[in-house]
């Protein structure tokens, strides 16, 4: 056996699930929704795309799925170009769109079976049954879609996307306007799919969800990807910490000898809150504590808090604006 046997490495093992390079979109109206954008989604991860309304999340997803034509750039899905081998790339992808666009007069069973056929898969009633049961739709299988509630319609859209056993699943704001039960069901389903090896890309407004669910987070604003980071790393790196001091005696104002940037009085004067960059070499904590002692301000307790993804997100978007 020679070294050549090992090289080139199996393409399937090497490339990402999705590779977006220099992707641009300018709509017919002249509006540029995506500036040149690069992004790689790893196989098997849950990737959360965060961004304010109009950031370009749906546009990006729509291009990858083949619904919107790109203006420039390239997208590879499992190593295949979406424009050159659309049949290959599309059969790998399931899409749950943002809008509740369902049929009306068809039954749940029919519309989900239709999706499977449309994606080129042989009929498999056992699989459809499994999907419907997983989504608590089994009892509703013979109901016409128009008779279902909004939450149930959302489940139907997910069932349609899963009907053809995709390797990559896009969920475009899946929990917007959805009840708590469905949200919980959905996240347990997403975890199970990930365990089965499905790559999941979701967009959400609920930052706690990204924080809870995602392996990596991308932040997009005005068509630009501002940041892509491991979620844990992101929280660690960009996370600002807060030091909260519980005061023995309430303060009316912060004495000038102690006052500094990032120090605030809270809890009606019962707490001092100092925000600092956990990653910085000098956090300023020692100096603060020294000044407090010198001013005779005593505290009964202290704690530190990590800032949430939401704080990070708001901060990033504000900085980029």
């Amino acid at each position: 056996m020679t070294a050549a046997t090992f090289w080139p490495p199996d393409r399937a093992l090497m490339h990402a699930a999705i590779e977006v390079s220099a992707l641009e979109k300018t709509y017919a109206s002249g509006f540029t929704a995506l500036k040149p954008l690069d992004l790689a989604i790893r196989r098997g991860e849950i990737f959360a795309l965060l961004g304010p309304n109009g950031a370009g999340k749906t546009t990006l997803i729509s291009i990858i799925c083949g619904i919107v034509n790109p203006s420039a750039g390239r997208v590879l899905v499992e190593g295949h170009d979406i424009l050159l081998e659309p049949r290959k790339t599309r059969s790998l992808i399931g899409l749950v769109p943002q809008e509740l666009t369902t049929d009306a007069f068809e039954t749940v069973w029919d519309t989900v079976s239709f999706s499977r056929g449309l994606f080129g898969k042989r009929a498999d009633p056992a699989h459809i049954e499994r999907v419907l049961r997983d989504l608590s739709l089994w009892e509703k299988r013979d109901s016409k879609i128009l008779s279902l509630s909004g939450g149930m319609k959302r489940r139907v859209l997910i069932a349609k996307a899963l009907s053809h056993e995709p390797q990559i699943l896009f969920l475009d704001e899946p929990t917007a306007g959805v009840d708590v039960e469905l949200r919980r069901d959905m996240w347990s389903l997403v975890r199970r799919l990930r365990d089965e090896g499905v790559t999941i890309i979701l967009t959400t407004h609920y930052i706690q969800e990204a924080e809870e669910m995602a392996d990596r987070v991308g932040v997009i604003n005005r068509g630009e990807l501002i940041l892509v980071e491991e979620k844990a790393e992101l929280m660690r790196k960009l996370g600002r910490k807060r030091l909260v001091l519980q005061l023995q005696e309430r303060l009316a104002a912060i004495p000038p000898s102690v006052a500094r940037e990032n120090l605030e009085l809270a809890g009606g004067g019962a707490e001092l809150v100092y925000t600092y960059d956990a990653k910085a070499g000098r956090t300023g904590i020692t100096a603060l504590l020294g000044d407090l002692a010198a001013a005779g301000i005593r505290f009964t307790d202290l704690r530190t808090e990590q800032s949430s993804l939401e704080d990070i997100f708001v901060d990033l978007v504000r900085r980029a604006a």
Partner: peptide, 10 residues
Amino acid sequence: GTIYEVLSAP
């Protein structure tokens, strides 16, 4: 809007 599915299908 259900056309999205046909457009995204192989």
